[in-house]
């Protein structure tokens, strides 16, 4: 099976500092990759490279073999990569439906974006489409960010700490929603989060970063028992 997302030797340098240093991995359609590591290990920078925000110093990001990196964020969207942010970012005064309409229109070169109702159903946002984004609860706003990304019809979805600020029940519901997105839409999902109770049951594969490089890759069970990972990041988690 050919990988949907291929990240090949990505390096991102700021002067002498390598924020991301030779990261490679692949991800199939419908797969969920958990990206973990200590603060400053390069996770968000890597996400920025994948999303087209940062141009890689070396290496490439490809979808179905077609290079999608280094061409700007809006072109990455058209290539099929969408992202959410650590902090909630929405068009606060717009209704969710208006925001989804804009996102769907911008990805007009792509096909296969799910309908508003399908997205709302997958993310348990039914009944909220015609509410202004700014009036939604904090948890609903974080789900609305994912809805906005899905409206672009992505093949790869990048979630940057989606469960931050959520309680146990909300993060469990979020994990179930992300799983539905991966399974039912066939979207490859990369999730960055520090909440292991949220991430480990959700991810098929976990990639651990430290000092910009890949420390370990494996199933959640393998990562949990990896001594180097325990020493550098997980501890007793």
């Amino acid at each position: 099976m050919t990988a949907l997302l291929t990240v090949d030797g990505v390096v991102k340098r700021y002067g002498g500092l390598a924020a991301v240093d030779g990261v490679s991995f692949t991800l199939n359609a419908g797969g969920v990759l958990g990206l973990i590591g200590p603060n400053g290990s390069g996770k968000t920078t890597l996400l920025g490279v994948l999303a087209g925000t940062h141009e890689p110093t070396a290496g490439s990001v490809a979808i179905d073999g077609r290079v999608a990196s280094g061409r700007g964020a809006h072109r990455a969207v058209r290539a099929g990569i969408a992202r959410t942010f650590q902090t909630t970012r929405l068009f606060g005064s717009w209704t969710l439906r208006d925001a989804l309409r804009l996102a769907r229109g911008e990805a007009r070169g792509r096909s296969g974006a799910a309908s508003d109702e399908t997205i709302a159903g997958l993310l348990s946002l039914d009944g909220l489409l015609d509410r202004p984004c700014g009036s939604l609860t904090s948890a609903a706003q974080r789900l609305a960010m994912i809805a906005l990304a899905l409206a672009t019809g992505p093949r790869v979805l990048l979630l940057d700490e989606p469960a931050v600020g959520m309680d146990t029940a909300e993060s469990a519901a979020l994990a179930a929603a992300v799983r539905r997105v991966a399974d039912e839409l066939g979207v490859a999902v990369v999730v960055v989060d520090h909440n292991m109770h949220f991430l480990m049951p959700l991810a098929d594969t976990v990639l651990v970063m430290a000092a910009g490089a890949v420390l370990a890759t494996g199933t959640p069970e393998e990562i949990r028992s990896n001594e180097a990972v325990i020493a550098s990041y997980l501890g007793g988690a």
Binding site: T53, H74, V77, A82, F85, F91
Partner: peptide
């Protein structure tokens, strides 16, 4: 719509595909 999106949040606009 694109201009309004830029006004609301330019970075987010880029990440939903707006060539800001």
């Amino acid at each position: 719509d694109r201009l309004r999106a830029v006004r609301e949040d330019e970075d987010l606009a880029q990440h939903v595909g707006v060539p800001t």
